Each structure stands twice: as structure tokens, then as C-alpha cells.
Deep mutational scan, measured.
Amino acid sequence: DHDVVPEDKFQETLHLKEKEGCPQAFHALLSWLLTQDSTAILDFWRVLFKDYNLERYGRLQPILDSFPKDVDLSQPRKGRKPPAVPKALVPPPRLPTKRKASEEARAAAPAALTPRGTASPGSQLKAKPPKKPESSAEQQRLPLGNGIQTMSASVQRAVAMSSGDVPGARGAVEGILIQQVFESGGSKKCIQVGGEFYTPSKFEDSGSGKNKARSSSGPKPLVRAKGAQGAAPGGGEARLGQQGSVPAPLALPSDPQLHQKNEDECAVCRDGGELICCDGCPRAFHLACLSPPLREIPSGTWRCSSCLQATVQEVQPRAEEPRPQEPPVETPLPPGLRSAGEEVRGPPGEPLAGMDTTLVYKHLPAPPSAAPLPGLDSSALHPLLCVGPEGQQNLAPGARCGVCGDGTDVLRCTHCAAAFHWRCHFPAGTSRPGTGLRCRSCSGDVTPAPVEGVLAPSPARLAPGPAKDDTASHEPALHRDDLESLLSEHTFDGILQWAIQSMARPAAPFPS
């Protein structure tokens, strides 16, 4: 592969990997390779389809078979030569091979799209000592099968071997295949498990690692696999990028399955594409389908809103127990993405979901129960707010008499603000006073009005108090039968009158 990737590009890729991570280095090298001529790309395919690569990765054979028959990708048995050289000459001794072996032994695996480039050397060096003999053996194999790289107009793939297949390693990572398949204008990513390549439709969760975000852009890794992070704060999961590491605690105790298979379609829109997988259930989501939507993949363990709600429900009964003089119970939860139609709101002032922060849900004790107040519409209280300059209440639009249902020339009671006709409430011909108009209920007259088809109010509507207090003497005590009587009149003013009279009014101040 030294004929494909020059030394300066190799060093530039290593520097970019240390600065921005393996995914960015892979993407940059792939983009550079696509700008080369067809001879360089053909050399790339020839390096990929060597015999030892085909033996190690069985899924490469179907890719090789898909090439046109007129494309010669065979390799000479006596060494490598550029395709432009007409004579089959043995190339001179390859010093770059020693360079590659020494550099890969030092860096474990470079971040390139060629056999030198995919593992994360920093994480491997940190986690190597417990498994040094086995990992050293794996390093000797890295130059042979560490990076199976493929690129063409139909298929483009980048393979990364790992030393996680050490025997006896619980939940060992089998390997990473960062794979971009450009077929019919689409893009897919796969993962390699035990020599087999699994596409998103049959993606397997190998051991402790999972394909957290099938994305090839942005600074985030394709698999949430930063070796420096180790395990999740809650004892979460091992990262795919942690090559040759000792077994780590796999999943939280509440995880239903340690080796679950995540779905390959969004649980909201039932469509495929780039998904984020939940650590607590097999569901996966688009970032845009979450509520609120996320802009980037959160670091650490992530769970959907259903799993978060289940966790909150487990903690909430203990938080609601009476604990005198104790601060509110704080339950730190990872930043969760909410699927459509589901929402768990945190306290005000918290950062938005999706940031690399930890939301704190506070379970406050329930407030003391209070008697429910009568629910009145805002339009129902409008007549009470229509007060004239002299303190006389004006008529609201649409006000109707509670007896006849007519809204023409209605009066407004100064005591309960109900609309009424003087002739309907006082049919006996009582003279109307000039000021202080009161309806039949507030004036103490319980004589029913002779209106055909309208039920008369119940005599129990009024329960006047002592006459010594004029204001308190007109406080009506309405009961269920009074409400039914008012409802039978089918008037809004009657219902409003009952609601206003049912509310307690402050006692009249004593004259000074």
C-alpha cells in the first residue's frame, strides 16, 4: 500500500487522527484517494484483494465477484509491481515495509483507509498491559489484515481490525468495519463480527460495544468508541475503539438485554438511515425525530424517553415518601432524547437536551391539597369587569335574561352582576328603583315568574340570613337542586349567576 499512500500523506493522516480522531482521518484520506487517478484506485483494489485478505475476510469475495470481468485485479505471486511496468521484474528490497512494521508496532494501528489505518492507538496503548502477550500477537497480524480498504464507483468500504477477539475476553470487541457502500446513491455502514460483515439490516451488537450512531460526518466517531472515555459513568459499556482492553462492566443492572439487537429503522417514522440506538431497549431513532430533536450524538450512555420514564417511576415512589426537613431528592440522569409524543421536562434553567451534561430531575413533595375552585371561562368573567365610571356595571355583549332568554333592554344586578328583565323577575308590577337594581334572587323575592315553557326556580334557592346585616342577608345558599333548576333554563347567565354566588365573597367592612 506504500505505492498507493505516500509517506507524507501517511504522516498527515496520523497527525489528523491524533488531533480530530479516526473518523475524520478516514474521511480525509478517502476524499484524497478519490481525487487520484484511476491507476492509484486500481492499485488500491489490488492491494485489498490479496489472497491473505480474501482468506481472512470471507465477505470480500462477493465484492470481488461483483467487479466487471474485464477488470484485472489479480496479484502476481513473485511480488508487487506497478501496473504500468511491462516487465515482470522483482521490485527492489522494500524498506517501507520495515517502516510500516515499526510504526504500526509503535502506534498499534494508524488512522488511514489502508491496512495502516483504523484502530485507535492511544486507547490501545492505555489498555494494553493486562493483555500484552495476546495483543502483541495481534499486532503482528495487523499489517496483514488490519485495514481492508475498498473503493469503487459501486462499493466503497473501509475495514478496521481490532485485537478484541482475544480468547477469554468477556464481551470482547470482535472488530470495527467502517463501511461506506455507495449503492444507488445511498450510504450504509456496517460492522465486522468474527470475520463476517453485518449491514444495518442485520447488524449484531457484538459483546459490549454497539453501533451508536451510523454517521460518517462530524467530529463524533462512527461508533461511540473513545478509548479514553473507558466505561460509562454508571458502569455503562465498553467502547469499540478500545482495542485489546480488559473486560469492562457491560450494562447497567436495569438493562433488559446485554447482547440485544437494535432495530435498523426509526421507532417514530419507521424509516432507515442514520440512527441513534438506545442503551436500554432495542429501539433506534433519527436525531430529527426525537422531541426535542438533537443536533449531535450525546457522549456516554444514552437512553430513550421510555427508558428514562421507567427509571424515574422506579425512583419516584421512594422520593415521595414523607421525609421531614430533607432537601428534594435529586436523581442524576443521562441526557435523554425524547421520541415524538413523549416529553420529560427538567427543571427550568437546565441546558437543552443533547448537550454533554447531566440533567437533574428533582422530585419535590406534593403540595397540600386544596379545595378545587369553580372553573370559569374568561368570557364568563367579562360582565364582572365591565364597570362604568360611576361604579355601575355596563352590559356585556350577548347578555340575556335568565328567565325569558331575551337580551333586549336587559338590566344588570348590582349584587350578582346577572342580566335580567324587571318585568320577568317582578311581574307583579313592583316599581323599579332608580339605583341599586337587584334581581329577584338578590332582592329576596322568590315568586316564580309566569313564563310559559320555563321551569320556575326551586323555592330553596334563597336562604336569607339575619336582617340586621343587609349585605350578609342576601347571601344565597345554592344546592344541587338549585343548579339543576338553573340548568333547565338553558341560559348561560343562569349558570354564571350560580357560579358567582357559589364563590365566597369577603364580608362587608363594618362602618367606622
Rank of each mutant, 00 (worst) to 15 (best):
337 L>S: 14
355 M>H: 13
501 Q>R: 02
276 I>T: 09
463 A>N: 06
323 R>F: 12
338 R>Y: 14
426 F>R: 04
329 V>E: 11
268 V>E: 11
367 P>C: 09
294 L>M: 14
493 D>G: 03
456 A>V: 09
367 P>Y: 15
363 H>W: 13
455 L>P: 10
382 H>W: 06
278 C>F: 08
413 C>M: 00
461 R>W: 14
448 P>Q: 04
410 V>H: 12
498 W>D: 03
483 L>P: 03
417 A>G: 04
392 Q>F: 12
413 C>G: 02
474 H>P: 10
493 D>K: 02
328 P>D: 12
301 T>A: 07
296 E>H: 15
273 G>W: 06
346 G>A: 08
363 H>K: 15
379 S>G: 10
289 C>G: 13
248 A>P: 08
355 M>G: 08
490 H>S: 13
429 G>R: 10
288 A>L: 09
502 S>N: 02
461 R>S: 03
416 C>V: 02
304 C>K: 13
267 A>P: 11
371 A>H: 15
370 A>F: 11
354 G>K: 03
428 A>I: 07
250 L>K: 13
265 E>I: 10
258 L>G: 11
432 R>H: 05
460 A>L: 11
403 V>H: 08
384 L>W: 14
470 D>P: 06
456 A>H: 12
289 C>W: 04
314 E>L: 12
385 L>P: 09
334 P>S: 12
346 G>C: 08
443 S>G: 08
376 L>C: 08
264 D>T: 02
249 P>A: 09
347 P>K: 09
281 C>A: 10
429 G>W: 08
285 F>G: 14
327 P>I: 12
279 D>L: 08
485 S>G: 06
408 T>S: 10
423 R>N: 02
490 H>I: 03
295 R>E: 11
497 Q>W: 01
504 A>S: 11
428 A>V: 12
454 V>Q: 04
248 A>N: 04
327 P>L: 11
279 D>T: 09
495 I>D: 03
336 G>L: 15
276 I>N: 13
316 Q>K: 11
437 L>V: 08
369 S>C: 11
446 V>E: 14
499 A>K: 01
443 S>T: 13
390 E>K: 07
495 I>K: 01
376 L>R: 07
412 R>N: 13
477 A>Y: 08
332 P>L: 11
420 F>C: 03
451 V>A: 06
284 A>W: 15
332 P>E: 14
270 R>I: 14
483 L>F: 15
420 F>V: 02
